[in-house]
């Protein structure tokens, strides 16, 4: 039983990282109905930037903040230069951003090399926290889970409770109508793209604290975030949370009970969900 709980908790803390990455993707999709295939690149770049800042300043928070802003700004530039003009053409956006990720992967390899690095945290966080029934559990994983919950709640409140959020939601439903009411939808689009990219960059620092950063992680995290949003339902922040939790838990249990096929099983989850509910668990019917 302890074992079961422990694996489940590991799954949830892993899910926290997946959620942070996927939330940016689902946010962008939710508003703009486009998928950015450079999302994994944003994750890895954010991790590297966070790593450099944290190494130079010795301050993890500064690294996370810097990475989020830098990646957000880069995302904004990509949106303005490459995406904005055919924002309605979802396939072309997917392909152009795929091109961006090809370039990003190569340039990051040139700059940061092929060896693994990790964002440093103060040794005080690298300790076990005694949990009832589980013994000692790594504090850092619990903190990351907490961060993910805070971000998730914050995003949900932002979208559902603020005026800006209601503009965003209106923009999703009918961007022409919304702009007719005097809202500058373009600014809304741009700012959401900034936010989505910044979240990926932030996730890179968080993920890069727990796991190594190296070439190839961009592809893996793009895939995981795609699976998470497909399972959870595209465009839905709570959906991304549920999707991430499922993916994280399935992958951890699979690692114990069927290690050989753990990745296969993680992806198979997506196939099962699609077969039962093509729009994803919390997806809206129109998305299919």
């Amino acid at each position: 039983m302890d074992q079961f709980l422990l694996i489940a908790l590991n799954g949830l803390t892993l899910a926290a990282v997946y959620f942070l990455v996927a939330s940016g993707l689902t946010l962008i999709f939710g508003l703009m109905r486009v998928i950015t295939m450079a999302h994994g690149t944003s994750y890895l770049l954010g991790g590297y930037i966070g790593y450099v800042i944290a190494r130079e300043t010795g301050n993890w928070l500064l690294g996370a903040l810097g990475a989020a802003i830098a990646v957000g700004v880069l995302g904004l530039i990509i949106h303005q230069v490459l995406i904005r003009r055919f924002q309605d053409d979802d396939m072309r956006v997917a392909l152009v951003t795929l091109g961006v990720s090809l370039i990003g992967t190569d340039l990051m390899l040139a700059v940061f090399g092929g060896t693994a690095t990790q964002v440093a945290i103060p040794a005080a966080f690298q300790v076990g926290l005694p949990l009832p029934g589980l013994g000692s559990y790594p504090l850092i994983r619990l903190l990351i889970l907490l961060v993910a919950v805070l971000v998730g709640v914050g995003l949900t409140l932002f979208i559902n409770k603020t005026r800006y959020g209601s503009i965003v939601r209106a923009g999703v439903d009918d961007s022409q109508m919304t702009s007719a009411t005097g809202v500058n939808v373009r600014v809304v689009f741009a700012s959401i793209f900034f936010l989505g990219s910044a979240l990926a960059g932030f996730a890179g620092v968080v993920g890069g604290t727990l796991f190594p950063l190296l070439p190839g992680q961009d592809g893996s995290y793009l895939l995981f975030s795609l699976v998470v949003v497909i399972v959870g339902g595209m465009g839905s922040v709570p959906g991304a949370a549920i999707g991430a939790a499922l993916v994280g838990i399935v992958s951890q249990f699979a690692l114990v009970y069927a290690p050989t096929y753990s990745l296969v099983l993680t992806f198979a989850l997506m196939v099962v969900v699609l077969a039962i509910r093509p729009q994803g668990i919390l997806g809206r019917r129109s998305a299919t």
């Binding site: 951890q252 290690p259 753990s262």
Partner: peptide, 17 residues
Amino acid sequence: NSWVPVGTTDYATIIAQ
């Protein structure tokens, strides 16, 4: 024996085994 797929980054559960 734990044979893990290449690219496995989360070992928390394996360590618990």
